[in-house]
Design a binder for these strands. Structure first.
Length: 429
RNA sequence: GUGGGUGUAGCUCAGCUGGUAGAGCGCUGCGUUGUGGUCGCAGAUGCCGCGGGUUCAAGUCCCGUCACUCACCCCA
């Protein structure tokens, strides 16, 4: 395996490749997460991966870290400022407004999936291109919708077999009660001994100081006022009903009044799914209500709630719990031609079988039967079809079960092979 | 952006106080003249991340650099 002397090109910093066989697990995880929404009346939304920079500045908030220092922003040929999407909700809102979905039946329930981009320093579970699956339910204040969204994510994770995670839940209040609380909190924070950077954060987004992981900071926050205790009556009532519905759905959550989300648009119900086996980047999904976002972006005065689930991190979580691999073989039948005469009939058989919907592969390069069998074994195919000159002459194939080792000769006919192979439980004799 | 760690075969790694490279797994082939998984045998593959310095001699020491990685920040 002599390497050429041409210089190698590496992937840009912080972008993951998923190569086989792990790529199969990635696919399985993404499928499990997306089916949550698609099986619950959420319709698919296909969205661009880049948008006007303005969308995120206005929608997500200029003071957020995501917008202020983590966006991939560039000018296109027409000198427009374009940004690779760092999150999904703002883009969905833009599309809903642009496609007038907000004028149709409510709530609008959508799901989406794909890559997102943040120019952060990479580490375990934190990538510059990350894959996310999300849902958004727009145009309803019903606390049952909050509970629906949370339980969709909850049971999607459960469906993968995940156990070592929990749901943090809180309410961030609304435009009526949060401003007051914010002032109370800022007054409290001003009295603390904080470094300059943290003081700045206290000024811009005081809620986020509550989430500081450093001990010298946390120690000072024990007596900090909490949003929970300052919710207005509407928010308090709403939050109580969300919890009642969650209980009805069988979701187990943990109240975390200090939980904070990094995006400015969140109001009222917010939640985060935290896995315990991932190290520092432990959030595998999160979301919440965003009651002012739509109008902020020039649309109707509609409230909404949604989540984003991290496919990359969920895969890591599954691996941490020893749940992978999820996949079976990607093929049902492996065909081995023996000798020159059999090459063409084998290829022809494979083409017919594929056309009939059977997943199959064959041995190429006229390998020895021994090495072809080895490859067949590694492919994981439950059956192997051996096609030698004798068989071709007699119009037969030898069909072998790889699990039992038994084999029999059957007619060299796509239909009968297909029937035999599709029922993986039948053995050959 | 700030700190720590690591860079030796495809992968995981060993190489002590400096003397021009090793293991396991994997891979290829053979043991079967038409048959895999087990077992046995044989074999291939390394600019020891890159550049410079010290030295008779550097994978091993020093400096720089790049990459990866973990953590802070932030978040999926």
């Amino acid at each position: 395996m002599a390497a050429s002397n041409a210089p190698k090109i590496n992937a840009p910093k912080g972008v993951p490749d998923y190569s086989p066989p792990r790529s199969r697990d990635f696919l399985a995880v993404r499928e499990a997460l997306s089916s949550a929404g698609s099986h619950a009346g959420y319709d698919y939304m296909e969205l661009p991966v880049f948008e006007s920079t303005e969308l995120y500045v206005r929608g997500v908030g200029e003071s957020t870290d995501v917008v202020s220092k983590e966006m991939y922003t560039f000018s296109d040929r027409g000198d427009r400022s374009i940004t690779l999407r760092p999150e999904g909700t703002a883009g969905v809102m833009r599309a809903v407004i642009e496609n007038r979905l907000d004028k149709g039946p409510l709530p609008v329930k959508l799901w989406y999936a794909g890559p997102f981009f943040r120019a952060e320093r990479p580490q375990h579970g934190r990538y510059r291109q990350l894959q996310q699956v999300g849902v958004e339910a727009i145009g309803s204040d019903d606390p049952a919708v909050d509970a629906e969204v949370i339980s969709l994510a909850y049971f999607a994770f459960k469906s993968l077999g995940l156990k070592n995670f929990h749901v943090d839940l809180t309410s961030l209040g609304c435009n009526d009660c949060r401003p007051n609380y914010r002032i109370v909190l800022q007054e409290f924070l001003n009295g603390l001994d904080l470094d300059e950077e943290t003081q700045e954060r206290a000024r811009l987004n005081p809620l986020r100081v509550l989430d500081d992981k450093r001990e010298q900071v946390q120690a000072q926050l024990e007596q900090a006022p909490l949003m929970m205790d300052h919710l207005c009556e509407n928010c308090s009532e709403h939050y109580a009903r969300v919890r009642t519905y969650l209980e009805a759905a069988g979701v187990i959550w943990r109240e975390n009044p200090r939980m904070v989300r990094g995006l400015d648009y969140y109001t009222r119900t917010t939640f985060e799914f935290v896995h315990h086996g991932l190290g520092a980047q432990s959030g595998i999904g999160g979301g919440g209500r965003y009651d002012g976002l739509m109008s902020e972006l020039g649309g109707s005065e509609l409230s909404g709630i949604g989540y984003g689930l991290g496919v990359d991190r969920t895969l890591l979580a599954c691996e941490a719990e020893g749940l992978t691999p999820f996949h079976d073989s990607i093929i049902d039948l492996y065909i081995i031609p023996i000798g020159q005469q059999a090459q063409l009939p084998a290829f022809s058989l494979m083409s017919q079988l594929r056309a009939s919907g059977l997943a199959c592969d064959m041995s190429f390069d006229a390998r020895s039967i021994k090495s072809a069998m080895k490859n067949a074994d590694r492919s994981g195919a439950p059956f192997v079809a051996l096609l030698g000159d004798d068989e071709v002459a007699a119009g037969l194939v030898t069909l072998k079960s790889m699990s039992t080792g038994n084999q029999e000769q059957i007619a060299l006919d796509a239909e009968s092979i297909s029937i035999k192979v599709r029922d993986r439980n039948t053995d050959v004799e």
